[in-house]
């Protein structure tokens, strides 16, 4: 039996994980393979850094449709870093990245470490993705505050936490990106 949260093996009969203090609800297989979607840097021109990303939001629209049944960029789990969008509006200063895409941190992910709701967060067995189960999640937003990468957030319109779940191993964003600047890679 393994701890749901930190993945460490529990001593026999233990009700509380010795290393993280989490109370496991059911046994899980220890997730060894962890995958993630990563945006890649593209062209570096003479004068500036530039990505291949065209800010077309195709990934966001497909993500939203795949998970929510309709395309709306607000409901997307991936948010492209819209440097170029800002650039188009002639903003020279670097914009703060409000949202991005989950890195599926290997080991004890900060979001899972702070989640106190049993069953709300777990690792997908196939991809190692950190999944939020909206049935158990109470939208306390602790994970949002804990995440150093702004990769999980609450959306009022949908009334739930949004976070990349790797689409069960076939990330739609990677499949549709017209400029091939997203890649699906194994991290651990």
């Amino acid at each position: 039996m393994f701890c749901q949260k930190c993945g460490k093996e529990l001593s026999k009969g233990a009700t509380v994980c010795a290393s993280c203090g989490f109370q496991p609800v059911e046994s899980k297989i220890r997730v060894k393979n962890i995958w993630r979607v990563t945006p890649t840097m593209g062209v570096v021109s003479e004068n500036k850094f530039a990505t291949d990303c065209t800010a077309c939001e195709t990934c966001m629209n497909f993500c939203s449709h795949f998970h929510e049944g309709s395309a709306n960029t607000v409901l997307s789990r991936i948010v492209i870093n819209p440097t170029e969008l800002e650039w188009m509006l002639h903003e020279t200063d670097d914009p703060t990245v409000e949202r991005t895409i989950c890195r599926q941190c290997p080991g004890l992910a900060p979001c899972m470490a702070v989640c106190k709701v049993a069953g709300a967060m777990y690792r997908d067995e196939k991809t190692g993705a950190v999944i939020i189960d909206p049935e158990y999640c109470n939208n306390c937003r602790a994970c949002e505050r804990a995440c150093p990468y702004n990769a999980v957030w609450y959306v009022e319109g949908a009334d739930k936490m949004l976070k990349c779940d790797l689409c069960g191993g076939e990330p739609q964003c990677v499949e549709v990106c017209p400029v091939f600047c997203l890649k699906y890679e194994k991290v651990a």
């Binding site: 077309c56 650039w87 017209p178």
Partner: peptide, 22 residues
């Protein structure tokens, strides 16, 4: 041309470019 392409929402053609005169 600075950063090469940009496109409208959901566009795969990205016919827009970003320009700067140096």
């Amino acid at each position: 041309a600075v950063a090469y392409h940009a496109g409208c929402t959901n566009c795969l053609e990205h016919c827009t470019f970003l320009w700067e005169v140096f």
